[in-house]
Computed example of a mutant assay.
Amino acid sequence: MLTSKQRAYLRSMANGIDAIFQVGKNGVTPELRDTVHSALEARELIKVSVLDNNMLSAAEAAEMLASRTGADIVQVIGNKFVLFRQSKMKPVIELPKAKK
């Protein structure tokens, strides 16, 4: 679970990246889930675009992918959303520490 400070930090990082995946008319398929899983392991922070011909909203697609990959939703804006998951092999992004 991300704190608001961590979420703000990740949003600022995601501002400069492009969407690397598109959720099309087939929705969230097992193949898409697997490729997003691999991308999260490699990059930790990804942006995904939802096409207009999809029956899912960006928030619904983000929720489905996040739950199926174990990622956190950073933000949903328009037809795009950002996911984050810390890499198990070699973490790259260091989040601000949460206050206790």
Rank of each mutant, 00 (worst) to 15 (best):
N79R: 15
E41F: 06
V92H: 11
M89P: 01
R33Q: 13
K80D: 14
A8S: 12
L45N: 10
K25N: 14
L2C: 09
V74H: 04
M13F: 06
K80H: 13
A61K: 05
K97Q: 11
V74C: 10
S57K: 12
K90Q: 06
I17V: 13
K47W: 01
K97E: 07
P96V: 04
N79P: 02
N53W: 08
P96S: 11
V48M: 00
N53H: 09
S12M: 14
E60N: 12
L56R: 11
L56A: 09
P30F: 07
K47F: 03
L32I: 05
T29G: 12
F21D: 02
G27N: 14
D18L: 12
S57P: 05
T3A: 05
E94D: 05
I73G: 04
S87V: 04
A61C: 13
Q22W: 09
I77W: 07
G27M: 13
G16Y: 08
T3C: 02
L40E: 04
S38D: 14
T35F: 09
Q6K: 12
S57M: 05
L2G: 10
M89D: 09
A42L: 09
E94T: 11
S67C: 03
I93W: 03
K5V: 12
I46N: 01
I46G: 01
N53D: 12
E44N: 12
E60M: 12
F81G: 02
Q6T: 07
L10N: 03
K97C: 00
L56N: 08
A14R: 07
L95Y: 10
K47Y: 04
V48H: 01
T35E: 14
M89R: 13
I73Q: 06
L51Y: 10
V76C: 11
N53S: 13
K25S: 15
V23M: 04
I93H: 04
I73K: 10
K100Y: 03
L45D: 09
S49C: 06
V23F: 04
M13Y: 08
R7Q: 15
K90I: 07
E31C: 02
I17T: 07
V92F: 11
S12D: 15
R85N: 06
E44R: 03
K80L: 10
L83Q: 02
G70N: 05
N54F: 02
L10T: 06
I73H: 07
V50P: 01
F81H: 05
A66V: 04
I46M: 00
S49V: 03
K90D: 00
V92N: 11
F21R: 03
I17Y: 03
V76T: 11
M64W: 06
K47S: 12
S87L: 09
A39H: 12
V36Y: 01
K100C: 01
I20P: 01
L51K: 15
L32H: 03
L10C: 11
G78V: 09
E31L: 14
K5N: 07
A66F: 05
S38N: 13
R85V: 05
L95N: 12
I46A: 04
A39Q: 14
N79E: 08
M89Q: 10
L32Q: 01
F84L: 06
A71N: 08
V92T: 15
R11P: 00
D18H: 14
K100G: 02
M55D: 14
L32K: 02
D72H: 08
K5G: 03
P91Q: 09
E31N: 15
V74F: 08
A71G: 10
V92M: 13
T35S: 14
A62N: 07
P91N: 10
L83C: 00
S49A: 13
I20K: 13
H37Y: 14
